[in-house]
Amino acid sequence: MLTTVRLEDTEFEAYVQAGGAVETGDAMPDDYRSALIKFIEMHGNSELMGVLPEREWILRAPTLQRKLALTAKVQDEVGHSQLIYRVVEDLGKPREACLDDLVAGKTKFHNVFHYPTKTWGDVAVIAWLVDAAAIISQKALLKCSYAPYARIMKKICWEESFHILHGRDCILALMTGTDEQRELVQEAVTRWWGPLMQFHGNPIAAEDDPMYRWRIKSQANEDARQQFLDGYVPQIWELGLTVPDPKLRKRDDGVWEYSEPDWDELKHVVTGHGPKTEERLGFRRWSREETAWVRSAVLADAA
């Protein structure tokens, strides 16, 4: 049996700041544990809720290849939520409790998954740009002080790299197609730009954020957004697409300038008031209730 030593928070902070890794059975401050659960659970929720804007389009995919790729992508997202919820479960919050809280609206998920997917153009833009924004955040988590989370992030990032290629391929097919198809993409870029700019969150000074002090996160929100703009705005422009922000430009010092994202909208949406929040949570509640008997019949041994 391990002898646990109660670490003082400052000592713990110094340990993780110096690159120290924390494993499931290690002693850790309660605040660190609850911050981890909250953060990782939201990530799991996002993967699971991120399935819904895309899954209905599996049924409408216009070719067999697209149908296969989209099914595989959604499958990966479910797989990611499985990996992530297992990490949360080992930190002390069971999967069923996470799902209960999710469908009750008690926990959050990323802003972009609260919006409707109106056309096949949205499907392509989600796979291309929303996934690009997400992979930037997820790559930064490879260095997370909580080692079990950092380890699964390796698998997740590897799988996500295929999603972006799928997205870009869908985009290129549409952009080299008819005027109507190009219009689908432009409309989707216009629709998604606001949520994409809000995605990485409002700028917070690193020293004010315990998530950095504990090295749960190691990338500032604004750095992530700059990385996204730097990587993807040139790709958007080179295809002849327009970004709906007249102020968007890259300064000589390499920093991107842009109009202030609508932080009120972000707050409103992630607190459960997005255009699709209620419908999607309702759908999850429904499917979960309908299959509850399977879990009790089949996973009964696990109890």
């Binding site: 797989g79 499985q82 990996l83 297992r86 080992d90 999967r95 380890r151 699964i152 698998k155 590897w158 799988e159 089949v298 996973l299 009964a300 041994d301 696990a302």
Partner: peptide, 27 residues
């Protein structure tokens, strides 16, 4: 190397799910 964990009712299910979660891309 440790890859992760999964929940399953028995070894037969666990085997199927392990194949899916850690082998579906021949990784």
């Amino acid at each position: 190397q440790h890859g992760g964990s999964l929940e399953a009712p028995n070894l037969a299910f666990a085997e199927t799910y392990a194949r899916e979660l850690y082998g579906r891309r021949d990784e």
